[in-house]
Amino acid sequence: MKPVRWGVLGAAKFAREHMAPAIHAAEGAELAALATSDPAKAEGFLAFCPGLQLHSSYDALLADPTIDAVYVPLPNHLHVEWSLKALAAGKHVLTEKPIALRAEQIDQIIAARDASGFLAAEAFMIVHHPQWQRAKEWLDAGEIGQLRHVDAAFSYNNAAEPGNIRNRPDTGGGSLRDIGVYTLGSMRFVTGAEPEDVAARIILDAGVEVFADLNAMMQGPTGRFTYRSMTSMRLANRQEVVFQGDKGMIRVGSAPFNANVHDVAEVELHLPGQRVITDRFPTANHYKLQVEAFGRSLRTGAAYPCPLEFVRGTQAMMDRALDTAMEISL
């Protein structure tokens, strides 16, 4: 079967360093086209994919009849617009997270997906990584007993970059919108839980939320548990998610979100008697696995592992937190 021919909308740094190489390397995929008005920005892509077709506009790429699917790495506030345009142009679309800034906007994409028959998905790559699948397997198998609490943290410091799109309210900036999808989405993926209530305290800097302390009571398939998420764009680097039960603990703490970039991917199972089982995944590339999962869904008709309905649940939880958040100062 012929490979899925991919086009990339925009020469974003993240696309150049991670997703475009992953598409190029993925089984059943072909990196075929890039849309950018600046030829200089295309050079980094051409370095590893010399045969790449260049288009001077996003619309020109969407009009290319040889392209099957597009990857959208544009700033947050443009995700809905170009996801809908891609579907309308007859393309499958994989859009960076968050795919929308409000849950109700995802409803538009779901409706367009269903009407068109094309696949639309958010690039929530971590669910394709074996460390997260292992964490879910351990939890589902009852290895830690009754789940009682989950806490997640993701932080970095970009205070020296005021022009960064993450530090701008007009481009959908903020720590929750940038990295809250990881802390909330990973918890929901592993536990299958939804919030009963949500509360948050936030810190604003120049109109952008740069710190969010979110607390919730969650209801999952096996009962209720408490949850806490901390995200920040003003703290030292930290990544960690802990699932704590009454008999043990699962910790994804080396590189839960930037696997094998931040550190080597590994997940720990802490059992009674201070016994710890550690599974390490030094070669897994979740970007490549994501592209391959997308392609399998197109070829076989199998359900995509992370559908927009799941993504909507994460965004709805984030919306509830931001809508009711209390501003604080530290």
Rank of each mutant, 00 (worst) to 15 (best):
Val198Ser: 04
Thr191Leu: 03
Pro195Lys: 06
Tyr182Ala: 11
Gly185Tyr: 11
Gly220Leu: 09
Val210Leu: 02
Glu196Asn: 02
Gly223Ile: 04
Ala206Asn: 15
Val210Asn: 10
Val190Trp: 04
Pro221Lys: 04
Gly223Glu: 11
Ala199Lys: 11
Leu204His: 14
Met187Ala: 15
Gln219Cys: 04
Val190Asp: 00
Leu184Asp: 08
Ala200Asn: 05
Ala199Val: 13
Pro221His: 07
Val198Phe: 09
Thr226Leu: 09
Gly223Phe: 08
Leu204Ser: 05
Thr222Asp: 12
Asp197Glu: 10
Asp205Lys: 15
Gly220Trp: 12
Met217Trp: 00
Gly207Asp: 06
Thr222Leu: 08
Ile203Pro: 00
Asn215Val: 11
Val208Phe: 11
Met187His: 08
Phe189Ala: 05
Ala193Lys: 05
Gly220Pro: 09
Pro221Ile: 06
Leu214Glu: 08
Ile203Ser: 04
Tyr182Pro: 03
Pro221Thr: 06
Thr226Asn: 06
Ala206Tyr: 07
Thr226Glu: 10
Phe225Tyr: 14
Gly185Arg: 07
Phe225Trp: 12
Asp213Ser: 10
Thr191Met: 10
Phe225Ile: 03
Asp197Lys: 07
Ala193Leu: 11
Asp205His: 15
Gly220Asn: 06
Arg201Ser: 12
Arg224Met: 05
Met217Ala: 09
Gly185Glu: 07
Glu209Ser: 03
Phe225Leu: 04
Ala212Ser: 14
Phe211Cys: 05
Val210Met: 08
Phe211Ala: 05
Gly207Val: 00
Thr191Trp: 07
Tyr182Asp: 14
Arg188Gly: 01
Val198Ile: 12
Leu184His: 13
Tyr182Ser: 09
Ser186Val: 12
Glu194Gln: 12
Gly192Arg: 05
Ala212Arg: 09
Glu194Ser: 13
Ile203Ala: 08
Ile203Cys: 09
Arg188Leu: 13
